[in-house]
């Protein structure tokens, strides 16, 4: 299936800079802020945002990682088992402002699972959501606070975000879903 590139590395870089700026503006600084990325790729976004916040504000924002596999609402693992990654939030999240980061916001189910998981680690003052791509077709009442780009893709289209760190290439891509292919 042919993929079309919707954004390249430079554009992704600009989106991240803008999201970081909005986070600072919205929270009037980065005090008490912490980033939590959802594996895999949300954690890359979280780390890049942290680097950007450091550059802009000169302040180190802690970064945590969560894998929501154990919190999914559809425990139907394929015969090909995904390796469950270790969640790691190496700081106390109580009273922190958590910015949850993921690459694509689609149905909202991943974010729902991530919220449940984060709340098992403690009681943050607030949780905000940053995504690189927001596509429509939400199945839950969930919205993002910081958005790189809104892409109203059709249900049978797949949006992929690739990062150098995880995929060896960089960009936002769209393609038609092949018949049997399931949602990633």
């Amino acid at each position: 299936m042919r993929e079309h590139r919707l954004a390249d590395a430079t554009e992704i870089g600009r989106m991240i800079t803008r999201i970081a700026t909005q986070i600072i503006e919205h929270n009037k600084g980065v005090e008490d802020l912490a980033l939590v990325g959802i594996v895999r790729r949300g954690d890359v976004l979280a780390r890049r945002l942290a680097a950007e916040l450091k550059r802009l504000e000169g302040h180190e924002v802690p970064v945590g990682v969560i894998d929501i596999t154990l919190y999914r609402d559809d425990l139907q693992l394929a015969a090909e088992m995904p390796m469950v990654q270790t969640s790691s939030i190496p700081f106390d999240i109580s009273d922190k402002i958590i910015v949850l980061a993921d690459d694509v916001l689609f149905t909202g189910r991943t974010v729902r699972a991530a919220l449940t998981e984060i709340l098992d680690f403690g009681r943050p003052r607030m949780i905000q959501l940053a995504v690189l791509v927001d596509r429509i077709h939400r199945e839950l009442p969930i919205g993002a606070d910081f958005i790189g780009r809104k892409i109203p893709a059709a249900r049978d289209e797949i949006i992929d975000v690739y990062f150098q760190e995880t995929d060896g290439k960089e960009g936002v891509f769209i393609k038609k879903r092949a018949n049997e292919e399931t949602e990633k």
């Binding site: 894998d67 919190y71 469950v84 680690f121």
Partner: peptide, 18 residues
């Protein structure tokens, strides 16, 4: 996989809804 669950045991709330 057990390594992952070993981490869950360390959490303030050591339960997952899996």
């Amino acid at each position: 996989t057990a390594e992952r669950f070993h981490e869950v045991l360390d959490r303030p709330i050591p339960f997952v809804p899996a």
